[in-house]
Structures are given as structure tokens and as C-alpha cells.
Design a protein around this nucleic acid. Structure first.
Ligand SMILES: [Zn+2]
Ligand SMILES: [Zn+2]
Ligand SMILES: [Zn+2]
Ligand SMILES: [Zn+2]
Lengths: 326, 326
DNA sequence: GTAGGTCATACTGACCGGA
DNA sequence: TCCGGTCAGTATGACCTAC
């Protein structure tokens, strides 16, 4: 097996060779520390002096904290999305393929998308993923010695880039959101973001688009692919308080940039394995949101995923950080 | 008397209220420290990531060291030009008037300049200075309670903005100059700079234009106004080694941006008191350049100043930093 | 009154231990 | 594996002292 998939990765923030997968993105040690620090002390963040246009790279990453943090968020870093334990090879494969796809810009397969949005990231990735790995979806080893075992299936995604972000971060840095009745104690809230620069695979459960709102549901739903043989098949838990997830059409905080409301749409793509994200920003037990039996299939036809999201209170034991992942 | 003329000044680098006159310019404490530090450790200076276009102000002064140092030099800061002891009120008057002039852009008097260059700084300042202070040139106190006692006379200035800068700084940051036969041990050399942003009064002896080269002279000359009653009337000494001051028409280092060679021109202006600049970048005794009896007059007519610049070796005692200035 | 030294403060990122 | 704590190295600027 490939000994260090991380070795080929670059920091999604500054393009330095990545040290690992930190807070939801491949990052270098510096950006990892920066994000971890900044999150805990947001008040010290100054404003950008360059109209928030700073390009972050290895050399100048320290010169504008605001833009550095913005890039961190844009590439998908999040305290709530972070987790202990190793990331599966599947996840890394996704990222590698995405990088490949972006590099040579190849679109070798026709993937029918029900919506034109996100063609670039999603279509490219999906096609390459399909064309390169589908033949090995039962062998257990890819031509490159890695073990993919699923194929392109479908995702539920939102037509508007709603996502789950830290409102505290958003407010202090971008001012898109205002404090509502809810407090920010949990440091989690619902926000939107502009189209991310493909920080992680658009098929990754960590990809912001995969956190979608369901109209009339009031819940948050993500997708997991149980076709992956090693997938954890238990419930997916979210530590977001229900009051933040309640969907209110008249809520100005949830106003779409395009003016539309988020809808669930069919989407031909694939989802790799994803373990339970653990909210490291708060260790206190709190109401959690659980979605049961996410609809997963390798059927190529589009189909609405039937998410039966239910709201429960977390009465269980503290987060188990000891379990191993293979 | 005005208790703190410094109070009205802003840092010429970052526009924060100035703490005093440091290294040749009114600066805040931070920019003072920065310049002092940076000068001693130039190798650690990184490059600008913004095409050397950064605008330095109080908020972002720390974000680009290269541009901050550039601004420091542009406003006339220099280790060699710095000195111990207080600055005369005359000097501050010049700076204050210059600021006033720049602020309301008034040109209330016709000052005939033999050359169109530097009209902006010089003409404005000279005219205002004349119109506001000439009537008091014998009283010993200005209408504002300060004691001006000279009037606009004439200066020798260069048609090209040659100046005396630290070549070490220039080379490492701007690359305008190359090392010639001379070493940089003294950290002083001849350079040119683009038109400074009026860091000090253009009539000030510290104003770079006042360090002029005389064709065929091989020396450096500045002007002092002995009409100022409190002026030190002794020789003006410069710590620049003669080898650095030797003027060579074919020297590519001294190529004028405009293509011309520096010439001495008539100039209607005034020079305030100026004490001996002390080169703090080296405490070793070294050959100094002395100019005797600079031609000074309050005659309004233009006249060539007869500078009898002579070259001597400094055999005198170490720099006397104890003398008081009133 | 300024140059330079000092030092509290803050930031950075390599490193390491715990989970 | 990753998260978070640690810590040496570095930059900053207010303050102080020598001159
Ligand atoms: Zn990085
Ligand atoms: Zn920025
Ligand atoms: Zn300043
Ligand atoms: Zn710059």
C-alpha cells in the first residue's frame, strides 16, 4: 500500500508540501497551527489591508492573517469538521484525483449533471474517478496500489452553496451574518460561502456543498456511501445544535446570494468513506442531530435520496476518541 | 515658546503621531525602532509581495518590511544623517510650514526659480516661508512665538536628485547601485533617489537635494544660512569619506535618471540652522569633508553661491556629543 | 531631545505526546 | 493518524538610559 499519500499533497492554503490532513484539509504544519490558534482567539485578527485580495503562498502567508484565515475557511478547514484518527485512503484518493484532474484539466467522460453548477469541480472529478478506478471497484487494489472499492454513484447537493461554517469566524471576518436569537456559544451556525476553490474533492463529505438543507425538513443532511466496503454504516452524527439547523425560509441569515432557496437536487457523483466528524470546538455534550440510513446506491440513475433526518438529544457518553479506523 | 513642536508632526513613514525626530525624519517610536533594527540586519529583509507598491500606514506598517524600509529611506531617514541632540526650532518651523503648504496648497508669492524642477516642494515652501516670516526676521520672535531670524535667501541645489544614501541599503533593497572600487565599510556612498515625498523641508540641509555635487570639484556641498542669528557659524563637517564623494562623470553609478549631470544652480530659498550631522553608523574617526564659508546672503537676487569646498583629513578628537544646542 | 538598549508581548512553525 | 501543547526563534514598539 502507498506508504504516504500525504507526501504528494500540497498545503491547500499556502502550497507548501502538506504535513497531513488537518481540520478538514491537507495543510502544512504552519497553517495547521495558525488555524488552530486563530480559531481560539479570533478577536486578535486584524483586517486585510489589501482589499481581501491577498494571494497566500509559502512566502507571504504570515503577512495577512485575515486572508490566511479566509483561505483556510475557503479550503474547507473547520474545527467542527475535524476529527481524530487517520483519514481513509479513499479520501486521499479523491484528493489526489482531484489534483490530477485540475492539473491536466481532463474531462474524459460524460457525466450527466442535472444542474450546470459545479461542473468544473464535480464533473471533472467524477469522470476521472470513474474512468480510472471503476474497473477496480471489486479488486481491492487500484492500479496504483491503493484500494478503491466503490464507483461513482450519486450525491444530494444543494443548488446554492449553503454550508456549515463557524459563524463566529464568518462574522468576524466577512460580516455576512449577524447574530440572531441564538447565541454563538456553540460556535457553530449556518452560513453560506462562495464557491470554494476545490479544496477537497467535491465528492467528499467534507465538501461544503454536501452539507445541504432540505426544504421543509429543518435538518441538515450529508451523504455517505455505504457501497464502500469499509464504510462505517452507523448513523452520522452532527454536533450542531438544532436551533442553528432549523431552516426558516424568512430567515435573512439564510438568504441565498442568488435569491433562491436551497433545494435538493440529483447529482451524479461519488462519495468516499467518511467517519463521524467530531466537533472539537466544544467538548460539552449537547443536542446532536442524527440522520438515519442515508440513501446510498450505486445505481447510475438519478434518484432523490430519502433522508429521514430526526432530531435527538445527545444523552450518550462523551466522544469516543479512542476508536481506530482502518 | 511652543512647548512641543513635535506634537503637531506625524510620522513621515506611517502617519502615526510622531514621537520625535529620528534618523533624519519625524517618525513614531515604531518606525524609529524599525529603521534602527533593520539597518543593523539588512539580510533578514524579505521582498515585497506587492510589486513594491505597498502604502504604509499605521495599521499595515508591519506587513511589508521592504516597503516600510523603502518609505523610511524615501522620507530621508539615514543612519549617517542622524545626530544626537535636539533639533532647532528653525528646523521644525520648516517642517511645519512645509506641511501647511502641502495641506492647503497655497502659492502666495512668486519665487523665481532658475529651473522648473522641484517647484512643488520648493516654491511652495519658499513662498510661504517668505510671506509669513520675513517681517519678523529681525524681531527674534515670529507671530507664533517662535524665533525665526532669517529670510529666504538662496541655496545651491542639484538639477538631478543625487543624494547621499546608504549604499548598503540601496543595494540590498533597490539594486540601483553596484559596489565599485570602494568598499562599503563606511556604509556611506553616493546614490540617487527618485524625488522624495517632501520628508523634510526642501530647504533643510537634510533635504537630499541639498547634498549636491559640484562639477569638477569632486566634493559635496551643502548650505547653511549664517543669517540665522543662532546659527552655528563654524564649518559644516561631513563624515562621508572622500572616495565616496569623488565625482566621476563616466561613473555609471552616477548616471542621472534624466540623463543630465548634476549642476549647481541658483535657487531662491532659505536654509535653517543645522548642526553637524554625526555619522552614528561608525564611531571610527575617518576622513571628513569640510566646506568653508558657504556663501549666504539675504540678498533676494539670485547669485551663485561660492562654495570653497576643501578636503581635509579628520585629525580632531572624537565626536563631541556633549555640546548643547539652543 | 535623540540613539540605542531593554523587555514585555505577540506570532510562528517544528516538534512531540496523547488519543 | 491528527489535535493540541510546547517552546525556541523572531518581530514589535513602549519605555528607559546615556549622551
Ligand atoms: Zn500552509
Ligand atoms: Zn489580505
Ligand atoms: Zn511610523
Ligand atoms: Zn511591499
Amino acid at each position: 500500500m502507498a506508504p504516504a499519500l500525504t507526501m504528494n499533497q500540497l498545503c491547500k492554503v499556502c502550497s507548501e508540501p502538506a504535513a497531513g490532513y488537518h481540520f478538514g484539509a491537507f495543510t502544512c504544519e504552519g497553517c495547521k497551527s495558525f488555524f488552530g490558534r486563530t480559531y481560539n482567539n479570533l478577536t486578535a485578527l486584524g483586517d486585510c489591508k489589501n482589499n481581501n485580495q491577498c494571494v497566500i503562498n509559502k512566502k507571504n502567508r504570515t503577512s495577512c492573517k485575515s486572508c490566511r484565515l479566509k483561505k483556510c475557511l475557503r479550503v474547507g478547514m473547520s474545527k467542527s469538521g475535524s476529527r481524530y484518527g487517520r483519514r481513509s485512503n479513499w479520501f486521499k484518493i479523491h484528493c489526489l484525483i482531484q489534483d490530477q484532474t485540475e492539473m491536466n484539466g481532463r474531462i474524459t467522460d460524460q457525466v450527466s449533471l442535472s444542474n450546470g453548477r459545479s461542473q468544473y469541480e464535480s464533473k471533472n472529478f467524477a469522470s476521472v474517478f470513474k474512468s480510472e478506478y471503476r474497473e477496480d471497484n471489486t479488486s481491492g487494489t487500484s492500479p496504483k496500489g491503493i484500494t478503491p472499492s466503490c464507483e461513482v454513484t450519486h450525491l444530494v447537493k444543494s443548488s446554492v452553496p449553503y454550508s456549515v461554517y463557524d459563524t463566529k469566524l464568518l462574522n468576524s471576518n466577512f460580516g455576512h451574518f449577524e447574530k440572531s436569537n441564538n447565541t454563538y456559544d456553540r460556535k457553530e451556525n449556518i452560513g453560506y460561502h462562495s464557491l470554494p476553490l476545490s479544496p477537497v474533492s467535491p465528492m467528499s463529505p467534507l465538501y461544503p456543498h454536501n452539507f445541504v438543507f432540505h426544504q421543509g425538513n429543518g435538518g441538515i443532511v450529508t451523504k455517505s456511501c455505504n457501497r464502500v466496503t469499509k464504510l462505517y454504516n452507523r448513523d452520522t452524527k452532527y454536533n450542531y445544535s438544532p436551533q442553528y439547523l432549523a431552516f426558516n425560509k424568512s430567515d435573512p441569515l439564510l438568504k441565498s446570494p442568488q435569491g433562491g432557496m436551497p433545494v435538493v437536487m440529483d447529482y451524479q457523483a461519488d462519495t468516499p468513506e467518511q467517519e463521524t466528524p467530531i466537533d472539537l470546538s466544544t467538548k460539552k455534550s449537547s443536542p446532536i442531530f442524527t440522520s438515519h440510513d442515508l440513501c446510498l446506491t450505486n445505481d447510475r440513475r438519478s434518484s432523490h435520496a430519502a433522508e429521514n433526518a430526526s432530531l435527538t438529544n445527545a444523552t450518550e457518553s462523551p466522544l469516543d476518541l479512542t476508536r481506530k479506523v482502518f
